[in-house]
């Protein structure tokens, strides 16, 4: 969802100014995210999930001026979604019946975390030479074999292997070197 953050936020800013088309577009996109969010957490009661999607849309509509434009829109959306979910559990009193093994889902990270990780990875890869970064993307993220990745750029399987290995080694050193500078808010 982080990839979508900038686009969604731009739509929201236009919607706040009264742009109805941007607003309809925003709500339609957020509906997809909300369906995924509630669908995963209420897999036993799909009709509840759709009710919650609608409730959340209405809540966002009523409280749209509680969004601070300096903050990520996705954080705002998921905070409201989580609030509505907790409210749903409270009303339907299912709290006590959630088995402990499934409780993890309640606290599961939103799409925000994997998206953050993806963003961090691509940010790191951007610091490597482009050809080497492309080989790492092809083999480690897209899942091609060394031979397939090599064929595309005209390298032998062994050369790809060495390139990827050196690239990963360089990457593993970089975040540590950066940790001091980028820590904190």
């Amino acid at each position: 969802m982080i990839e979508a953050e900038a686009a969604l936020r731009a739509l929201m800013l236009r919607a706040l100014k009264g742009d109805t088309r941007a607003y309809a577009d925003l709500l339609a996109q957020l509906t997809r995210h909300l369906r995924a969010y509630y669908g995963r957490r209420l897999s036993a009661a799909p009709e509840d999930a759709e009710d919650l999607v609608q409730e959340t849309l209405i809540a966002m509509h009523r409280r749209r001026d509680s969004y601070d434009p300096n903050q990520p829109l996705t954080a705002w959306v998921y905070a409201i979604a989580r609030y509505r979910l907790i409210d749903h559990y409270r009303r339907s009193k299912v709290r006590a019946t959630v088995p402990l093994e499934d409780a993890g889902a309640l606290f599961a990270a939103d799409e925000v975390e994997p998206a953050m990780a993806r963003r961090d990875v691509s940010r790191l890869l951007d610091r490597l030479p482009a050809a080497r970064a492309a080989l790492i993307r092809a083999t480690k993220i897209e899942g091609l074999t060394n031979a397939e990745a090599g064929e595309a750029v005209g390298l032998s399987e062994g050369a790809v292997k060495v390139n990827v290995h050196r690239g990963l080694k360089a990457l593993s050193m970089k975040p540590r070197a950066d940790a001091g500078g980028e820590a904190g808010e």
Partner: peptide, 19 residues
């Protein structure tokens, strides 16, 4: 109400506001 109908109802009712 279907969700798509809700979305069009909400966006028709949109009025400009400020944070």
């Amino acid at each position: 109400m279907k969700t798509d109908d809700l979305i069009s109802a909400l966006s028709e009712r949109l009025e400009p506001t400020s944070p």
